[in-house]
Amino acid sequence: MGDGAAGRVLVVNCGSSTVKLAVVDPDTGERPFAGLADRVGTPDASVRVGTTTRTPDDTSHRGALAVALEELPDDVRSGLVAVGHRIVHGGARFTRSVVVDDDVLAELRGLTDLAPLHVAPGVAGIEAALSVLPDLPQVTVFDTAFHQTMPERAYRYAVPEDWYAEHGVRRYGFHGTSHRYVTAVAAEVLDRPLESLRLVSAHLGNGCSAAAVLHGRSVDTTMGLTPLEGLVMGTRSGDIDPAVVEHMARRLGVSAAEVVALLNRESGLLGVSGHRDMRELEAAALAGDAPAQLALELFCYRLAKHVAGLTVALGGLDALVFTGGIGENSTGVRARVQELLAHLGVRADEGANAVRSQEARRVSAPGSPVDVLVIPTDEELVIARDARELVGAAR
C-alpha cells in the first residue's frame, strides 16, 4: 500500500461556505488532484477543479462534493483507500483521530454547539462523502485532539465547577494538526529527538494560535473554548476583558451574541486598521498609515507576550517555530517578534530571515541560544497519514 496510487487518501476540508479537496499520497505528499467549492449553500456556488469551473445544481456541501468528484480521474479514484476529514472541534471526547461509524457521527452532531460555524460543515462533509463514496472508510482528524494532553492547570478556567462539569467550559485549543506537523519537522531540522525538545509553535494566518509543545506533547496553547481567545488575528480580537461584551451590548443596544459576532468578524487587525490581510496591512504601515502601524505593533507585541508566557509551561525554550501564511511569508512580523523576545536569548539572522522559501529553514543567528525556524505547514498530509494508518489498523 505504501507506494504508487494504491494508498492515497481523499482529504476533505469543509468550511461554512467552502469545500476543499485534495488526493494526497501519505508517503510522498504528492497531490494528483485538488478542487475547491466556493460560496456553498448560495445560488452563486461554484466548483473549480484544475482549469474547469462548474455550477452545481445542488449547492449544498453534498452537491458540491459530488460535482467535484465527477472530475476525479478513474485511475486516481480507484487508488483511494479512505476519505480523511478535518474537524475543527472534537470537544473532550475525541483525543485522537477516529474512523467514523454511526456512534461517532451522532457524537459529532452533538458537538455542533461548541463551534457551529466549523463543526456543522465538517459533519455535512462526512455525510456528503458517505453519500458519494459509500464504499470508502471515513476518518475524522480533529484540530483540538493534539491539545488534549494539556494538564488541568492549563485547560481549566477559574469559573464555577458546574460550568466545567456540566457544560464543558474549558480550554480546548485549535490548529492542533498544524502544531503537531511543524513541531515534528522542527525536530528533523534541528536533528534532535522530538522527545528532548521544548518548542513554541506559532501558527499565524487569518486565525492565529501559539502552542507550547514539550517532548512532543501539547502542554498549553493560546486558543480556548473557541478560536476567539488568545492572539490578535485577522478579524478576531483575541484576549479581551469579558465584561466588554456586556458593556458594548448595553452601549450599542444589541445582544451579547451580536457583540461576540463583532469580536469574531469585525475586530482584530481589521477592527484596528481596516485591513485583515497582512500583506495589505504591512504595505499601509510602510506608507505611514498610523492605524496600520498600530495594528502591526499590537499583533507582534501580543504574539511575543504569549510566546514568552508559554515558556513557563516548558521550563525554557529550545526553538520557536513560525508557520501559517503570515508566519511563513511575513519577514517583518518574524523580525519584530524576534526583537521583542531578545531577552529570552532569541537572536535573529537578518539575512536568513529575509529569504523567502517554501523549505523548512532556520532564521536565527548561528549560536543563538534559541533556534527560530520557519516551517511550511501541511495539515492535509497529517490527515492523509492518520486516515491511512487507521484504515490499515481497522483491517
Rank of each mutant, 00 (worst) to 15 (best):
Q293A: 12
Q293C: 03
Q293N: 05
L294N: 05
L294P: 01
L294H: 09
L294K: 14
A295V: 02
A295N: 04
A295T: 00
A295W: 04
A295G: 01
L296W: 11
L296C: 04
L296D: 02
L296S: 08
E297D: 15
E297W: 13
E297T: 15
E297G: 09
E297K: 14
L298Q: 14
L298F: 11
L298Y: 10
L298W: 10
L298N: 06
L298T: 03
L298H: 08
F299Q: 08
F299M: 10
F299W: 08
F299D: 05
F299Y: 15
C300A: 15
C300I: 11
C300P: 10
Y301Q: 11
Y301H: 14
Y301T: 15
Y301K: 11
R302G: 00
R302T: 04
R302E: 00
R302P: 01
R302M: 06
L303Q: 06
L303M: 02
L303H: 03
A304Y: 13
K305Q: 14
K305C: 07
K305H: 14
H306I: 10
H306E: 14
H306F: 15
H306V: 14
H306K: 15
V307I: 07
V307F: 01
V307G: 02
A308W: 14
A308F: 12
A308Y: 12
G309Y: 09
L310R: 08
L310H: 07
L310G: 02
L310D: 03
L310F: 04
T311H: 12
T311P: 09
T311M: 06
T311L: 08
V312I: 12
V312H: 08
A313M: 12
A313V: 09
A313L: 09
L314P: 05
L314G: 04
G315P: 09
G315K: 14
G315L: 12
G315C: 12
G316C: 09
G316H: 15
G316L: 11
G316A: 09
L317Y: 14
L317I: 10
L317A: 05
L317N: 11
L317S: 09
D318F: 11
D318G: 07
D318K: 13
D318T: 09
D318H: 15
A319M: 13
A319V: 10
A319W: 14
A319L: 13
L320S: 00
L320E: 01
L320G: 00
V321H: 09
V321G: 01
V321T: 06
V321F: 04
F322V: 02
F322W: 02
F322C: 00
F322P: 00
F322N: 00
T323S: 03
T323K: 07
T323G: 00
T323W: 06
T323Y: 04
G324V: 04
G324Y: 02
G324Q: 03
G324L: 07
G324F: 04
G324P: 01
G325V: 06
G325T: 06
G325E: 03
G325Y: 08
G325A: 03
I326Q: 01
I326S: 02
I326A: 01
I326L: 00
I326D: 00
G327L: 06
G327H: 12
G327F: 08
G327I: 08
G327N: 05
G327A: 03
G327M: 05
G327Q: 05
E328Q: 09
E328R: 10
E328C: 05
E328L: 05
N329C: 02
N329F: 05
N329S: 07
N329G: 02
S330H: 04
S330N: 06
S330D: 05
S330Q: 06
